[in-house]
Nucleic acid binder design. Sequence first.
DNA 1: CTGGCCATCGCAATCGTTTGCGGTTAAATC
DNA 2: GATTTAACCGCAAACGATTGCGATGGCCAG
Lengths: 359, 359
Amino acid sequence: MRPDQPPVPSQEGTVRRTSAQQPPTLRDVAEAAGVHAATASRALNPKTRRLVSADTARRVMKAAKTLGYQPNPIARSLKTSKSSTVGVVVPDLTNPLFPPIVRGIENVLEVAGYSAWIVNTDNDRERERTRIDSLRSRHVEGLIIATARLDHPLLGSLHEQGVKMVLVNRRVEDLQIPFVTADDAGGIALAVRHLAGLGHTRIAHLAGPRNTSSGVVRARAFRHAIRDHELEDDPALIAECAYWNEADGADAMRGLLDRGTPFTAVVAGNDLIALGCYDVFAERGISCPEDISVVGFNDMPFLDKLRPPLTTVGVPHGDIGAEAARMLLDCIEGPERQSHSLLLPVSLVIRGSTARPSA
Amino acid sequence: MRPDQPPVPSQEGTVRRTSAQQPPTLRDVAEAAGVHAATASRALNPKTRRLVSADTARRVMKAAKTLGYQPNPIARSLKTSKSSTVGVVVPDLTNPLFPPIVRGIENVLEVAGYSAWIVNTDNDRERERTRIDSLRSRHVEGLIIATARLDHPLLGSLHEQGVKMVLVNRRVEDLQIPFVTADDAGGIALAVRHLAGLGHTRIAHLAGPRNTSSGVVRARAFRHAIRDHELEDDPALIAECAYWNEADGADAMRGLLDRGTPFTAVVAGNDLIALGCYDVFAERGISCPEDISVVGFNDMPFLDKLRPPLTTVGVPHGDIGAEAARMLLDCIEGPERQSHSLLLPVSLVIRGSTARPSA
DNA sequence: CTGGCCATCGCAATCGTTTGCGGTTAAATC
DNA sequence: GATTTAACCGCAAACGATTGCGATGGCCAG
């Protein structure tokens, strides 16, 4: 659309695009510095600067500064197939779990000169595929993925194709994809130790979906912990939620209650599931923690202001994101460094939703 | 890095890049269809398809499909200076106010074939400048901005430069930049009407920052409403928060309490400020709503599970985002349509934090 | 039968960088 | 003083698409 000035080529050799404030290009600074564009390119890039004389490097950099030159990432990306960009795939930004992770990611990416493309999948496989395709066509240099399911062919094939990626919060079975998650098992152990210490013996678990690693790891850890403390190991005390959200948490809780098996405490797969429990408590006039104690998982924001404040296990979300980003950058820059995975420590945040059993 | 095959040009004319699964390029499909790349380009683009014969168009599209051709957005963007991309500038994704807006934006962008670059500014002017620069260098076609301050020279200069943008949640003074916000004044009116109806006569306001439009609009609306209902119009009942967050809300509340002016209700500038009040209530043993009623603004998630559940004015965040995106697309496609601004209706969500004054 | 018009398509330039290669110059060697 | 050597820099070809323009051919009208 630019009115390409009529083909009167280089009338003077110095002035280009006089009228519009088209941002200056590399050629502009090259001309200003009296060198060829190639030289300017080398002078501006620290990695190639040693190929030009110190003097011309100075001249070029000065010219760049006075012209306010900003390299065009698109042209660069086209040429180099690099983009200084990574894709971040989350199920839903609206889930308070993810923004802190994203912030952690962005913080480390930013200082490394990278930026993040964020996409939501809404847990829809097809949408996930198209979003990731779009990321790849934009030449992202790697992927940080928060939507991993245990069985995830898409990730498998991406991995085979050599796409650099790291998983956050989740792992996938049988694949050597690096991940960084919270210490799920440790967190659950903390939770049931706390409940056992309060005197609970019949503790239920509202497990997350069986197709996510967090779901199964936490559920398994729960059964281990129950046995370790020699509490009631009753399969009827375990219910599974289809999704990590309030509605399914509430459903699971109702199911548990309707089943009639008595219990005095429940460790929820995560905070949202715990919130679902709160809803059911309100429905049925159950009081927490007097009738039933609840502990959540994640320590998402504002839990301290709930009625009652939710006891939960605190997870360093920002750190998870930051570590994941660091690992991805390692993958990208150091080609074949064997990057192992990371389990970040958690802590129990004791608030008002847990108490001694009334009985 | 691709091992550019030695300059044995077009040995057969058909095979390129046999080894690697380098994605097919436009030239590949052109060859496959037996036409020139230019023709292929025209055939693939609906807008130019009429320039080629129906038959070759079919051939090209078939070839594209069988090769799995995906146009390279980077090359396209370099040539056309378009990117099918818009920038979304928010202060902090971690604030639950913004994710729903972002989702709304993405939903309408997606069906239009656009996608969104999200950046956080942390309310830091310098960071804001650099992030927006980076967006522009990536050729975003427009900006959706949620960080507007009333006096915002940066936005002014962008606007002068012809950068398409629309503001969400905020406006800026003296500038004809289209915006879409909630009906702030209407929401405040609803809130004080509710409180007045309950019998409160001394109502305080914890105003948002004076440098944001929402802050001043809500504060002004508050004073109007107070006068309309002929309640105590005492300047000592108004405090201002430096930021829209819990900590500053708590500070303002403490200031109000320490001032000694009596009041029985407070309308907070937004939900986070209201949460700050909750903190102070806990500190000082004040009970809500018995001693003081509180109403927030925004109806962010999980407010219904607070102690007590927060009465607040509900804002259609998703719609705000969606409308903003629609307006921006209009700006981009229709060049000089006079796009006016939008005020979306709000509603009062009455919960447990408001009650009749005890006195 | 010829001229002209239109539909169709190819040519080549272009967007702004990066980078292999080759040429120039000055310094270093014997 | 001739020749090697290195440092420095320019040339031009990419990357993958879009697009103005011109060439070609077929078709119809005169």
